[in-house]
Design a protein around this nucleic acid. Structure first.
Lengths: 225, 225
DNA sequence: GCAAGTCATATTTTCGAAAATAATGAAATT
DNA sequence: AATTTCATTATTTTCGAAAATATGACTTGC
């Protein structure tokens, strides 16, 4: 892997996890020391991240971590529902045996990890997050549209920034609820019931959004610092 | 404007217009001479373009112009219809006086330019293209969603790559048809008839796509070279 | 004849310094 | 006291060369 790719991954992770707080200016000298490399690979990573809206920049005044806001969170969730409902319908219509197998496998992996993650360390957290994305990706992987899949990835990362504080929670009941939703969603999808699956998907995301909004209202400084 | 921004604009224009053919490898030394600058600003531009899918890259093997295909054109058009129909419905629901004024103004400018562009030089072509994007943007500018607006921009640029050969045509009848569609679309939107406006929008894009497909079948080497 | 290894060349990637620009603060002016 | 000017410092942006890696031709052994 090149240094630029290393920088991209590291910056992305640190931004999503809030280690680099929203709005924080990213100075080249500082980043160079933090990640142990010269300016070139860092600029390269920052430019990619800017195109993905995780970073903002003004010419000759440098980069900073993109800010967060409740309005943007709702926009992200609503757009996500639009994109994923369409992709899910297409997958249900077009999906083949491999697509079905992918869902079963992803759900299985997610359940295993989810059971373990309540008492988790950082590595297990990351694995759970990967499996979670893997599951939602598996649902729509049969849609046949590279644009829908790309927009899914973009919106997933953005949503992850808002979801991160929630992931830190070790609430057993909450984990169990989410697992049940995943199972129901997977079941409706495999039964090729598009209307039901789309409803469950929307409800799944809206529930999360409402939860985050409530949490944010209680402790707004956590993320929008 | 920084050199990196200059490079970004120039590369983008040359890719969209097919001056740099799809699939063509982009060698740093070559680009450096062509655009009269060092590697740094070029890499910066290429990274942004890669994130926007106008350019592909493989680590240590450099960049190349992203390829075109009929399958991808249809994916682009279909996704565009999804995004813009949603954005149009939201605009019709939420749009204020400024939004309405923007549509009237954009349509007016487009008509003026369109009448002139049949006998056009390169500058008028570019102005027409800007006005065309301006009009479609004006229709959905009231939607209140930065994600929908960003995806609109992304898909517009991609579609422009396919549409470019068509733009070269000096067919008066064809221009008149397109103008009529724009007028009808604008009218339905301002009348707040969401269902009709969405139908007209979809038909507008599908007609273009079918036209391009027919043209491509007749002379496939023009773009997919 | 053909695969695997080896060297020379072409190309990308990275660094470190120089150039260009912005931010800061002190002195001068109104 | 407030504003402007100007130098100083901090920071980004760009360049040119060095390092790292890929490519392709050529040889060698089978």
């Amino acid at each position: 892997m090149t240094l630029a790719e290393t920088a991209y991954d590291a910056l992305r992770r640190d931004i999503v996890r809030g280690v680099l707080a929203p709005g924080k200016p990213l100075r080249m000298a500082q980043l160079s020391e933090r990640y142990g490399m010269g300016f070139s690979p860092l600029r390269e990573a920052l430019n990619r991240l800017q195109a993905e809206r995780l970073v903002t920049s003004i010419a000759l005044r440098g980069f900073s971590v993109a800010p967060l806001s409740m309005a943007e969170m709702w926009d992200t969730i609503n757009t996500r529902v639009l994109i994923e409902q369409r992709a899910l319908r297409l997958s249900i219509e077009l999906g083949d045996d491999d697509w079905e197998a992918g869902i079963v496998s992803a759900l299985h992996g997610l359940m295993l990890q989810s059971a373990r993650a309540v008492e988790a360390n950082a590595d297990e957290q990351k694995l759970l997050e990967d499996r979670h994305r893997g599951f939602h990706l598996a649902l729509i992987a049969g849609c046949g549209s590279s644009w829908l899949l790309e927009f899914f990835q973009r919106l997933y990362v953005e949503a992850e920034r808002y979801r991160y504080p929630m992931l830190q929670q070790r609430n057993v009941e909450h984990h169990r609820d989410i697992q049940a939703e995943h199972a129901a969603l997977s079941q409706a999808t495999l039964a090729r019931d598009a209307d039901l699956a789309c409803d469950l998907l929307a409800e799944h995301y809206l529930r999360t959004a409402r939860f985050i909004e409530a949490q944010m209202a209680a402790a707004p400084q956590a993320q929008t610092a």
